Amino acid sequence: MMRSVRSALIALCISGGAGAAHAQDAAPRWSLAIHGGAGVIERASLTPEQDAAYRAALQRALDAGSAILGQGGQAMDAVQAAIQVMEDDPLFNAGRGAVFTAAGRNELDAAVMNGSDLTAGAVAGLTTTRHPIAAARAVMERSPHVMLIGAGADAFAASVGLEQVDPSYFFTERRWQGLVKALTEAGQPVPPRPIGAPPSGAPNLGAQAALPAPPLNEKKFGTVGAVALDAQGHLAAGTSTGGTTAKRLGRVGDVPVIGAGTYASNADGCAVSATGDGEYFIRATVARDICARIGSATAPDAAAQAEIDEARTLGGLGGVIVMTTAGAPVFAMSTSGMYRAAAASDTSARVAIYAVED
């Protein structure tokens, strides 16, 4: 029987279920889980073409991270690789394909954290750095800071050699039309079309030509993230987002707030990436609290569900992916779906979208 959307918990473990994974005598040599956002994603809201497109996109990201881990690479490298694939894919609300602010801009946030030493890096309000997740990692590894924002964050990213693009690079027609619809429904003025964007009505080019339209109610979700366990037993987490459609210029959600949308700790045996209503995930300190619960011997699935329920009590919906040192990923959500996938050294990859799948 399908569980209520209010407290849907999906243990999309690569061996077929959380119990099976925990019953193994030894943890997988490596394990990876990713998400592409949670929301009101129901079977009836996706055409077969849309369903297939999202699954293929998730598989590409999963393959990128798995290739690194399979060669003995570090968890952080795998997390970054998987997320960069999704940042480049217009299907997701991160990087190219990010939603627009009410002022008609794309403002991008990201964060990363190493479980081995609790180092972390975050950026917010980027407008010219192609891969925000790479900028977050650079803040962690190449600066004395944890978070940089706005023009200063873009300038720092450029100073360390990260690729810079014109802001129009992030433009996608479907996200622009989503902004127009949201502002029109709210009775707010629609800003001028961004400079450098293709003219209204012009044929889409490149990857956008075959891009399926998103579910009608996808405007708030689509954040991407990854959590990984590498062969050395280290955990890492990363998250990247464009935020929410028609957000106030300068708004920052939970993603770059360490402990809210992103957290990792080897000592607690936990790495988390979250997606959903950021204001509520910040108030509930979702990611850090999940790890604290697990570190205090709470079962990972129970820890994840407790935090998702707490955020819902405050008014926020969304989901989390959790990786443990046992290599068994847990996916928890309070929505009807979350784009997600998992793979490990000892089992086959699996991709899922809806809260309950066979």
Rank of each mutant, 00 (worst) to 15 (best):
D117W: 11
N106P: 11
T101G: 08
R105L: 14
G121K: 03
L69A: 00
H145V: 05
Q71H: 00
H145I: 05
F100C: 04
G115L: 05
T101R: 14
G70S: 05
A103H: 11
D109H: 10
I133K: 07
F100M: 04
G70E: 07
A67H: 04
L69H: 02
A94Y: 11
S66L: 00
N93Y: 09
A138I: 10
T127K: 13
D77Q: 11
A122I: 08
F100K: 04
H145F: 11
S116Q: 11
G125T: 14
L62K: 02
G65E: 00
D63F: 00
Q71Y: 00
G104Q: 04
E141D: 14
R142L: 06
A122N: 09
A94G: 03
A82Q: 04
V79P: 06
A67K: 03
A75R: 08
G95L: 07
D117M: 06
I68N: 02
T101I: 11
Q71T: 00
P90R: 12
D154S: 12
V112G: 04
N114W: 11
V79D: 03
I83P: 01
V146W: 14
H131Q: 14
M113T: 03
G65F: 04
A103Y: 11
G152K: 14
P90C: 10
D88S: 08
T128Q: 14
I149L: 13
A153Q: 13
S66P: 00
G70N: 06
D89F: 01
T119C: 07
D63P: 00
A155T: 13
Q71P: 00
A136N: 11
D89G: 01
A78C: 01
G73E: 02
G70Q: 07
